[in-house]
Design a binder for these strands. Sequence first.
DNA 1: TTGAAAGCGCTAACAT
DNA 2: ATGTTAGCGCTTTCAA
Lengths: 367, 367
Amino acid sequence: MRQAATIKDVGQRAGCGVATVSRVLNNTGPASAKMRERVLAAADALDFQFSEVGRSLQSSTTRTIGCVVPSIENPVYADAVQGAQAVFVNAGYQMLLTCTNYSADAEIHAVRTLIAKQVDGMLLTVGDAQNSEGLNLIRRRQLPHSLLFNAAPAGQTSWSVDDHAAAAAVADAFAKNNHVHTGFLALNFLSSDRARRRFEGFAERCMQNGMTPPALLEVDDDGLDLTAHLHGFLEDHPELTGIFASNDFLAFAVIRSARKLSIDVPRDLSIVGFDGIKVGQMVEPSLATIATTPRVLGTGAGKTVLSMIDGSAPPNVPQKEQTFSFRAGGSLAPLTAESKDDGKVAAFPPSNDQTRKTAKIQQERSK
Amino acid sequence: MRQAATIKDVGQRAGCGVATVSRVLNNTGPASAKMRERVLAAADALDFQFSEVGRSLQSSTTRTIGCVVPSIENPVYADAVQGAQAVFVNAGYQMLLTCTNYSADAEIHAVRTLIAKQVDGMLLTVGDAQNSEGLNLIRRRQLPHSLLFNAAPAGQTSWSVDDHAAAAAVADAFAKNNHVHTGFLALNFLSSDRARRRFEGFAERCMQNGMTPPALLEVDDDGLDLTAHLHGFLEDHPELTGIFASNDFLAFAVIRSARKLSIDVPRDLSIVGFDGIKVGQMVEPSLATIATTPRVLGTGAGKTVLSMIDGSAPPNVPQKEQTFSFRAGGSLAPLTAESKDDGKVAAFPPSNDQTRKTAKIQQERSK
DNA sequence: TTGAAAGCGCTAACAT
DNA sequence: ATGTTAGCGCTTTCAA
């Protein structure tokens, strides 16, 4: 790479000192018209641009914000990150992005590097906000930052979905549709406080609704075909009539696996997802899910960080109950009282359950 | 934010000069065991980390690479970016990310800023590689860089799908299924060289296959409900039996709109997408599409940039024909010889003719 | 109106 | 083995 011109080169060419160049190009002090012109010409001829590195050293500010998320392959994070990024650019900041792939090691390493890079602030989704080495580091250095999607520890700002309440809403939806025996499907259950809170909220409300405690199915790889897992799970729990998947992709995966196993969704098995990614509404059956607004959270968290940097008033985080809404969809169908009564709601029912088919159609039509 | 400790502070506390601190902490020169210990202790006590800004100024290298893509809301870019990011982190580089939202203005602005930030290299998907101000700037400065998803201009590296050939494969797929009259649906047609190349490749092969030239439907907003557009389009082109959407999301959108218009996919209308996002295989009907490997392209492009920086041998870009593959799916069905013969394969039954005429006229007038 | 110089944090060459 | 210092590109006093 060709060595870029510095302010000194410009000064030389324009026949003046570097201070003059700085003043002219930054419009930050007096300069004669003649000098002005010479400097401008020289800068132009040399394709000159100020080096932000020099500036940063001098000003001890980098106009850079670090962003750490698990993975932008998940559109929830991708949307949030893009929202934050837009906020940053508008305010003249750049974003350094690191994806941790849900690894705590990568997380702390990323935080360290970002601190070394002297970021002015940080935006992050950590694996476990209660116990994050990286987060502690940031706090100790009193670096402006905001959490995203994590449950906020005491005294912290976090732009997040109320996972607990949202999961409870899913339990209510199942209850309203007469489901009693449900399962919870999670990915990265151990390394994600989000998944755990969803399970807790779901299980609690199931109990309150007089449903049985949900059976837990954990899987550890995304690309995995769930068919075998699902098969085993339903073998172990033949009474299940519904599954709450901790995100929409998992929900899709379950639906596909169910199809392979000749289990009809929603006739034989109802599915509810979480996140509300847009394809959920484009497919058939549409996906019942918790709709969230990742972009809103991302922009909010971005603005929060900026406000901490410039000392302005931070935006208000949304009310907990406004962070999500239950979105009905064809993948969740009511269980008739009848099928419920005679305890015949096995995962592999006799092929012609006329009642339930009707129920499905009714729901379809009600859309 | 608390003022972070500098190498000077550490030296002071350890009772030695800054050079010694640097040598000890970097393992870059001799040091007595005693000194070593004192420095380590001091650094620890002060939570010291080297400032990369100081280092960068001194070494005129930032270990930072700029990445410019249209939008990571599109999983194709998100996957590629994440792949590149992983490559960078492994090599000790950080990534500055900017999303342009398909705006040429944002593109050049991002490039300028990234240059000012002294990035060591750049990875980018521009709107139009033949005519990109930002790309010119980068070339003029001889900054190590690689294109991603763009068709490579002469003498440039680009990790991209062979859009032209892939689109031709779609035409072949339609032909093999006896389709003759097809349409092409594009988003951001004007600002994306990708969309244009796909159209060209598709149109060319349609001709070669003895099909009629594809009708072009451009839309400009993503969130848009396509129903009205689709209705008008099919009014204008009642002979169409298949639509090639320039990306999978558009394909989903068309399918959903078709459903609203009581047009069955694939019976009344076949749809083929582009990109091969994973949900395409999870839904019913599954989406026929061009499967691509964004992550492979992203990591490849990332490695290319790194190799240009350190002068090592660049990875080989894949053979053009290996950059995609046609993936069959339920959304593309054969047209029977019969239906083809009597030309009865209109999207609307004859009874709707009156309505359609009206609608068409209305659309004409609204233009 | 302009320039000289200090200093931001660091590394490396040179002295001791 | 350790310290001193120049210099990376820039802004900002302070003098002229």
